[in-house]
């Protein structure tokens, strides 16, 4: 166990696997024969235009949607169609494109809720604001450099802070797999890198497998080891960022000419 994981995760140790996933909403195909095997410790990104099936993939893996057919394995355990809560308990966490916070609670209380939920034996008697809990919640907020906002409610938080809090809450339960749905959307351009840096920093050493949905090709190229490109519910490319951005069908259906050039420039 002392040998460090190779970059891109250990290909012999598959933590999450999707087999032949299909999902349709009426006439719209949201997933078509999706097959993925994600090695433990990998950082992957999911790209594709709106409606291509990225969020549907995240929603199926985390139990919000049940696939019409196909199976999802987590550590070789079948989790297809399980309730979100149970999947979370097993070790798959997620954040949301629109941060899902408890609007009337302060940032600290939001953190305390996730701490309380992470503990299966949450108590009817032990105070939620015990010194220990508050200390660990504060420490978590510090890791994401949002501790100054701890007494503010959601309406008073800037968009970037909401995003970070949403992700911090997802990380609280020490997940093995973390799915981030557009972590940088709605965040000012100059804050995107700092945000991703913070997230990656917070995950350092925990050997967490990360999959994030992203539109910004520079972020994809910089933070992910591998890219899944979605189009029309299918995965049309599954390769390193460099290769995916060179891919003819990706350029045509996903990134478009301009984005591909931008991606190319960063290579």
């Amino acid at each position: 166990m002392s040998t460090p994981e190779p970059p891109g995760g250990n290909p012999d140790d598959i933590v999450l696997q999707a087999k032949n996933l299909n999902k349709a909403f009426g006439a719209v195909t949201a997933a078509k024969d999706v097959n993925v095997a994600v090695p433990r410790g990998a950082v992957w990104s999911l790209i594709g235009s709106n409606g291509a099936g990225k969020t549907t993939f995240v929603n199926m893996v985390t139990g919000y949607l049940r696939p019409d057919s196909g199976t999802i394995l987590f550590n070789d355990k079948n989790i297809t169609g399980m309730e979100p809560r149970k999947i979370t308990r097993l070790g798959i966490s997620r954040s949301f494109q629109i941060p899902q916070l408890c609007a009337e609670l302060t940032a600290l209380d939001n953190m305390l809720v996730s701490l309380g939920s992470a503990n299966e034996q949450a108590s009817f008697f032990r105070s939620a604001h015990s010194a220990d809990s508050v200390a660990s919640a504060t420490e978590m907020l510090e890791r994401f450099r949002i501790v100054d906002y701890r007494h503010r409610t959601m309406a008073e938080l800037p968009a970037g802070v909401r995003k970070l809090l949403d992700i911090a809450m997802a990380i609280t339960g020490d997940p093995q797999v973390l799915l981030l749905d557009e972590p940088t959307s709605g965040v000012a351009a100059e804050e995107k890198y700092p945000l991703m840096d913070l997230v990656m920093e917070a995950l350092e050493g925990a050997n967490v497998t990360v999959m994030f949905v992203e539109h910004d090709m520079d972020i994809v190229a910089r933070y992910s080891q591998r890219v899944l490109a979605f189009y029309d519910g299918q995965i049309i490319a599954n390769d390193t960022p460099d290769h995916v951005m060179q891919d003819e069908s990706v350029r045509r259906f996903v990134t478009g000419g301009a984005a591909a050039t931008a991606g190319g420039a960063s290579c």
């Binding site: 985390t62 966490s93 899902q100 408890c102 009337e104 996730s114 309380g116 809450m169």
Partner: peptide, 11 residues
């Protein structure tokens, strides 16, 4: 406030 979130936190 947000039932969905609570469910996704494992409660």
């Amino acid at each position: 406030d947000n039932e969905l979130r609570v469910e996704y936190l494992g409660s």
